[in-house]
């Protein structure tokens, strides 16, 4: 009976730990296998520990080139989508114009549409326009599908903003530019940051739309997909692990910073 009592008391913790394990297990596997020394071309069976891949992460032909291309596209798509999305959000919340309701719902269409459909129709569009597929077509496509996510994040923030705050700023000698920079933008910042992070993540690992519109250009997700047919180099796991670690480090730093700031205030 004591076991049942113990189980009852800790059920929530156990369920939580199991869920966490479910979420993290794939990452653990990726990390563990980045230290593998596979026999054949496929990195699916554990052989023995080795740091070879970590010592030479760019040892696979073309992989680091595709990685840098993906990072570039992700950065520019994030910048483009965040700026445009923020402006759209302000327009939708602050101004009354004709077809505002229609724009409000149309902006979310890319989120709801199946990616394959969007990818195919984008390709048709680019081909009809005679555009050369490559970096620019990928970038245009990425900005397009990131936009709705940015608008969602920023709009919520702008809508909950008290218009009196801006009036207060104007009342306290801040001109239109100062009001925007000192009050509007800082208050909308968390929404904008959330939109930007989402855009970066979405753009960096997008495969379907990119694959349709890339022409002969190869991004990192396309490289992984391509190499999975012929054999998987350990370096893919190295890159995956590194990305994961960078993300975790990012979150931890921001937590430490905000904790310290709160402690100072109290």
């Amino acid at each position: 009976m004591p076991f049942v009592t113990w189980l009852k008391r800790h059920l929530v913790v156990i369920a939580g730990l199991l869920t966490l394990a479910y979420l993290l297990l794939p990452n653990v596997i990726v990390t563990v296998f980045s230290f593998n020394k596979p026999k054949g071309r496929f990195n699916y069976e554990w052989q023995r520990f080795s740091t070879d891949a970590w010592k030479d992460p760019c040892g696979v032909a073309d992989m680091c080139g595709s990685l840098s291309l993906s990072l570039q596209i992700a950065v520019w798509a994030t910048v483009g989508a965040t700026i445009l999305g923020t402006m759209i959000s302000f327009a939708l919340v602050r101004y009354r114009f004709r077809a505002r309701g229609a724009v409000n719902s149309l902006i979310f269409l890319p989120m709801a549409m199946p990616e394959v459909v969007m990818a195919a129709s984008l390709l048709t569009l680019f081909l009809n326009m005679g555009a050369q597929l490559g970096f620019w077509t990928i970038l245009i496509a990425h900005i397009m599908f990131c936009l709705s996510f940015v608008v969602t994040a920023v709009k919520a923030r702008v809508m909950s903003m008290d218009p009196r705050l801006e009036e207060a700023a104007r009342d306290l000698y801040a001109g239109p530019v100062q009001t925007f920079l000192r009050v509007t933008l800082p208050i909308a910042a968390p929404g904008i940051a959330a939109g930007a992070l989402l855009s970066f993540a979405l753009s960096f690992d997008d495969f379907i739309i990119t694959n349709f519109n890339a022409g002969s250009t190869v991004t990192f997700p396309m490289f992984v997909w391509g190499s999975a047919q012929r054999g998987t180099p350990v370096q893919i796991n190295v890159i995956g692990t590194a990305m994961f670690l960078i993300a975790v480090l990012f979150v931890l730093t921001s937590m430490v910073v905000s904790n310290r700031r709160n402690k100072q205030k109290a």
Binding site: D162, R164, L165, E167, A168, D171, L172, V183
Partner: peptide, 10 residues
């Protein structure tokens, strides 16, 4: 200068 209803502190 104005003291706003519900203060409008930044």
């Amino acid at each position: 200068n104005t003291v706003f209803q519900s203060y409008a502190l930044f």
